[in-house]
Design a protein around this nucleic acid. Structure first.
Lengths: 199, 199, 199, 199
DNA sequence: TGAGTTAGAATGGCACCACCCGTC
DNA sequence: GACGGGTGGTGCCATTCTAACTCA
């Protein structure tokens, strides 16, 4: 299946989400991560260490035989045509957002844009949820639920382990950190929802 | 003076920085904040509450008499021409970045782009620094110091008060939060450096 | 300069004021605190921890070379002769009072006594001001203003941090408490007035 | 019976305690309050309003027929001879103290002085106990319990109603304040202990 | 007059994260 | 040397109370 990760706003864990969804899907079939973000964050991440799947930029992607799964890390705020194209050629659009008002504003904008397009199913993913006792995560989840937006049941918490993973260029489960496994499980839960939704 | 806030990556506190630098400068002269980010984050922020300065989008800006200070909140990853234009027509370019590898990668890209341009002085601002005992802030600061990049001595810490401020549409000092005043002081320190650098 | 802290009534923050004014003055020149209160409160405070200046009792004071600044913590209700002597040999007399009627009564008595003496300038300091929503602080300030008594513009608020400071034997800024810094700033403001008045 | 209220340190509620113990005792027999404090706090209190018992200064006291009960409000830090005299000629010595280290220091000094005297029974009264969630009251109570000092079981909480009472010159139960009755009950509890101890 | 509202102080609890220990 | 537990420092929320203001 083809999973596209997109958002109108940067810094919401888009690359982290693409990397870890790819890592999860790799456990089921050969997976390719296409880095379409001009910042080349995913390629940079991969270059610092070892990832269990291949990462290519969007121009190289055409030369690669299409594997079982493909994850596309788009640029922040894709221009309209790109967005239409991306949305049309994938099985699931994942929209990561942090639980803060600025990211939610940007999410609303993106959803408005999507509304006019013939698109794949999409689903919102809450990321970088601050730790207890902050209730930002649950509050935003409840708020989003009332809007009727499709929402992943799982959410991704904010752990320093994810930044360590980016630093050493691996998936979070290969990081030496007490929260590494917990962070990974957050993505496992979401990954299962991805499989269920897209398959 | 004209202060431009720009970054290649979103979610690094660009809008928060623009808002609070404008709030600081307003204490010295009439200040205008131009929201050139297509997400209209700053306008959205302003619309939820009261800010002590005017916020307009980039098209309205031409109709406004030029006040004492102007702060421009650019879009994330401005395209090359825009960046050249922005950099040429301001007194100081503020480049906010968070202390994590993904943001630093994007910062490196931006600095490379700037290197080829005839531009205003620029300075890097560390934002959303996680609390003690994380040493991400000081480590990144030391790392950046070795690269010779111009760096604000002050830094902005990560406080929930800033998100509350975005939610209620005010500057952080008007937020009901124990860390509101401390967060504002972080920007006061930086604002003084801005005045010293740009004036 | 020589600063004398005196009051007719105990429990108005006389020792706390002496300690923190000394701590403030120490930032400008070597400072000595003379504890002339028979309860030896300041010496007891100092003995429990570390203060950034020397504390001696009044008999030892003669053996000490006179430093840049001297702060004298007098006994509550000094007898008439002492008061005359103290008032004559200092540059500024600080009269702390709490915003309650009993302390103000005692303050009125002291001011009457001072009226007949050739004395240094004196100034009243409001201390232990209860938190909002109590308006005791502002009400008493306005009332005192009508009497024409010289009054410090700054006031000291009632915070648990000051009692913690007494307990651990340090100045309030070394106490682990959210209000420690705020409490210290209250004394910084007053300290600047002391310097301006006495220098 | 004769009840003497004394302390080495001011501002611990000595006068407030004398007033309210007298008000309590007046409910059982005619009571006289002798104000031996040179600040004349009790007389000043009485002069502002109505108290249900007579207040005289120590010189007038000899001319007054001795009623059923007498409460003596001594000066803070009575000199040694006075203290001996006071302690010898009363049925109970009440030593009010606030739950802070400076007052406890002064209390320790006073108890040392008392140790060498042939005296009436004495008992320590915790006053101005800060509200929940501060545990200063219970902590100091437990600490004092370990020293073996005789301690009133009841304690007096810090309420603004007491200051209002001082202002209008009445006992606290005549003050218009939601906490007036509660504050009075604190003294009722202590007053019963006084009767039990002294009678 | 009395109830609800609001604002602030202060503590406790929980989580994150770094450091300092041991042990293996 | 690597791992694991304990410690301490910090941010953040929840709780509880005081005290003033507002409204019925």
């Amino acid at each position: 299946m083809i999973v596209t990760v997109a958002s109108f706003k940067g810094g919401v864990g888009k690359t982290t989400t693409a990397i870890h969804l790819a890592a999860f899907l790799q456990g089921y079939a050969e997976t390719l991560l296409i880095d379409a973000d001009p910042n080349r964050s995913a390629l940079s991440w991969a270059s610092r260490g070892q990832l269990p799947f291949q990462v290519v930029d969007q121009w190289q992607a055409n030369d690669i035989p299409r594997p079982g799964h493909v994850v596309i890390d788009t640029q922040a705020r894709p221009i309209a045509d790109d967005l239409a194209l991306l949305a049309a050629t994938c099985d699931l659009l994942v929209l990561p957002t942090t639980p803060d008002i600025l990211a939610l504003d940007a999410l609303a904008l993106m959803v408005q844009h999507l509304a006019g397009l013939a698109i794949a199913p999409y689903r919102v993913l809450l990321t970088m949820i601050p730790p207890y006792p902050s209730r930002a995560g649950t509050e935003v989840r409840e708020m989003l639920a009332t809007t009727g937006l499709p929402l992943f049941e799982g959410g991704i918490r904010r752990y320093a382990a994810f930044q360590k993973a980016a630093l050493v260029g691996t998936a979070v489960y290969d990081v030496k950190d007490p929260k590494a496994e917990i962070g990974w499980q957050d993505y496992v839960v979401v990954g299962r929802e991805v499989l269920a939704a897209g398959g």
